[in-house]
């Protein structure tokens, strides 16, 4: 049933976010540390485990894929509620502080990507399909 997929997704999300909150509290930070990341790993492990036992039927999976397809619309809705006015009102200081960091970060990406690349492409070439 489709609700099984949705429920599994919800449970994984809740546990992941909870772990993220706990980790934040543990290191004394007022933010969720890696909650979404933990939830993702949990979902991957859980769906894999269930699928291997034939317990994750295509109908259940559609409960997950529906929400992953809703991702772009949700992101558009998220964009529609950003404080764009606040960003503009910040003036040249906020504009420069925001953009210079982004420009430098973009420049860093290809450099940093090269670090892990040779080894990881080598592994990828040999890796059998899971």
């Amino acid at each position: 049933m489709v609700i099984y997929g949705v429920a599994l997704l919800a449970v994984c999300s809740l546990i992941g976010l909870l772990v993220g909150e706990a980790l934040g509290a543990l290191i004394g930070v007022k933010a969720n540390v890696g909650g979404v990341g933990f939830a993702m790993i949990l979902l991957l492990v859980a769906t894999d485990w269930l699928a291997k036992r034939g317990r994750f039927k295509p109908v259940s999976a559609s409960g997950v894929t529906f929400w992953s397809l809703m991702y772009i619309p949700i992101v558009v809705a998220m964009a529609a509620q950003q404080n764009v006015l606040g960003a503009i009102k910040g003036g040249p200081l906020a504009f420069l502080a925001g953009t210079i960091g982004v420009a430098l970060s973009f420049a860093l990406v290809p450099m940093l990507a090269r670090i892990g690349r040779p080894q990881s492409t080598a592994v990828k070439a040999k890796e059998p399909s899971r």
Partner: peptide, 29 residues
């Protein structure tokens, strides 16, 4: 629109996108 794009559904949908991602690729990096 605020509910649809709020933190709850955003995180929910983001977690859903992990379905079908390769765990091996994630670990490697």
């Amino acid at each position: 629109v605020g509910l649809l794009g709020g933190a709850m559904l955003r995180d929910f949908a983001i977690v859903a996108t992990a379905y079908g991602a390769s765990f091996a690729d994630l670990k490697k990096s």
